[in-house]
Design a protein around this nucleic acid. Sequence first.
DNA 1: TTGTAAGCGTTATCAC
DNA 2: GTGATAACGCTTACAA
Lengths: 341, 341
Amino acid sequence: MAVTLREVAEKAGVSAMTVSRVINGAAGVRDDTRRRVEEVIAALDYVPNRIARGLLSSRTGILGLIVPDVVNPFFTLVVRGAETVARRAGYRVLLCNSEADLALERQYIDDMTSLRIEGLLIAPVGDRSRASLLSLTRRAFPLVLIDRSVERLDCDLVQADSAAGAREMTEHLVAVGHRRIAFIKGDDDMSTSRDRLLGHRRALEAAAIAFRPELVFVTTVDRIGGYRAMQQVLRIEPRPSAVFTVNNMTALGAMQALREQGLAVPADIALVCFDDVEHLAVLSPFLTVMDQPAEPFGTIAAQLLLERIGGQAGERARVVSLKPDLVVRESCGSRPRDRQS
Amino acid sequence: MAVTLREVAEKAGVSAMTVSRVINGAAGVRDDTRRRVEEVIAALDYVPNRIARGLLSSRTGILGLIVPDVVNPFFTLVVRGAETVARRAGYRVLLCNSEADLALERQYIDDMTSLRIEGLLIAPVGDRSRASLLSLTRRAFPLVLIDRSVERLDCDLVQADSAAGAREMTEHLVAVGHRRIAFIKGDDDMSTSRDRLLGHRRALEAAAIAFRPELVFVTTVDRIGGYRAMQQVLRIEPRPSAVFTVNNMTALGAMQALREQGLAVPADIALVCFDDVEHLAVLSPFLTVMDQPAEPFGTIAAQLLLERIGGQAGERARVVSLKPDLVVRESCGSRPRDRQS
DNA sequence: TTGTAAGCGTTATCAC
DNA sequence: GTGATAACGCTTACAA
């Protein structure tokens, strides 16, 4: 098997402790002893066993990160942000994909706990993730929620101001002339879906437009969900002039449905969403979006987590609310030449 | 701290071994004893410590996965594929982002070894990754290369047939009338860059078009690299009628440069690349690409790795070559109405 | 400056 | 069926 500390010690003619001191850079080793040990380490290609170390110190140097969908560019950027900060602090990231599945998420949380990760970053499936997370918060396990809050779970959280963002988006749609707006969202179990609908309603209210429940479509917040919801939208009469989807993946699915029906955006119907679609904006700056600063979600969350692990955080839960940015492009139909067609 | 097996044992009035048997579903425990232990486990919210288990059995249940860039949709899909297969087999995936940095990659490999992962999936930075990987292959550590081979490193590999794919793409460009084609690629240290240039050259040769070294541009295979390389392309006279980039990210950067110069694709210049850009195809089916089956890269690699871990693999290295698919859309200028403008 | 002893949480082995 | 003991590779506390 792999070389152990004790083998190094033997070969160098010292005790295990001395080798341990050398690899940890501890003081109290004579220079020539240290040098000799280092030579043996190099010669044997010795790598200390973190597992063993973690058993003793429960410092494994691993953080957990659970997201519902790595392929969603929003979460991909979150991952990159978190990983960068973690690495700088000497931590590695164990990434898992819950696939928006509660049971899977729970299993991952258990797995990670059993691997003795030092802290967990998670974009939870929804409010029902509470049960799994409660077992962590109860024993003050370092935990930071990303993107979505969990009802009655008091812990650190990095999110966007969804209500304000959605309100601004709807205000924009209204400003460019839309009055009949469909809203495609996820289950109410998800804070983002709740909050964004709320913002949407507030904007309608402020514009004295009656809120119509039949224009709200609940689906899974992925591409297939957006696709199906859009098919439903197209079945109602009269057809809405605009559709607002709760995230980027739903918008892509919606777009696909529209394309299949031969409908043009925004000529036939306008389409806007929360989240930008990384890479898409470069090739085809077309979709009007409420852009969330995805990478900062990851970096800030990781920072909060590291502070908590380091005991510099205090007992109170900290909530960071990031402001999303309205990016007006073409799909909302705000450009007169598109709207008049 | 966390609840231990021994605490469960005490509370249940049995020995540690009995608890161990229960959590491992081993035979030889009376039903009522088992039930009693299970109750205590549930009551105390006990989660076994995999770290401790791993110390003994060196079975940590973790696979490592190192990619140069999680944000690249190709690798994101690889990640999802690998993770899915790993999970089904009861493994978790430790994901790291080497950022195409050799030193970082080496550090991650060391870290992972020291965490006693059971196997490693890696899309290596390049041939120079050999030194780090050799220390693994020497001790027959389960290892599968993804996407890129490493010179003189004999181990399992899942890759695309880059040469054939590039050749087909260039043949297509030639077929639709291009004769002056720029090629944007990464360093020769990367097998994909080497192989794709090779295929490109073969196609030119077959078409009796002279290969011009001054039309080959070497850069980093990311967006900024593509952006810079395209700026160089635009400086040469006469301007190539088509540009072939070695991957999706470079194509996006190239596109950005073209946009800034006010050049239209394909009217002013054609642009094609290796790899599709997930999500982009839905919203804007525009880029003509040599699509690689990204998710299968991950699933197949994970399967190979699991076989190796399970000792079902034999000594010989296995090489899986996946066939890429030409997807003709608009950017190659193959549609007459675009070419004649 | 260096070494000894004990133990982290689990499991393999062998008794009972 | 169940339990005692030792061991995995390392570090903490203390002794030399």
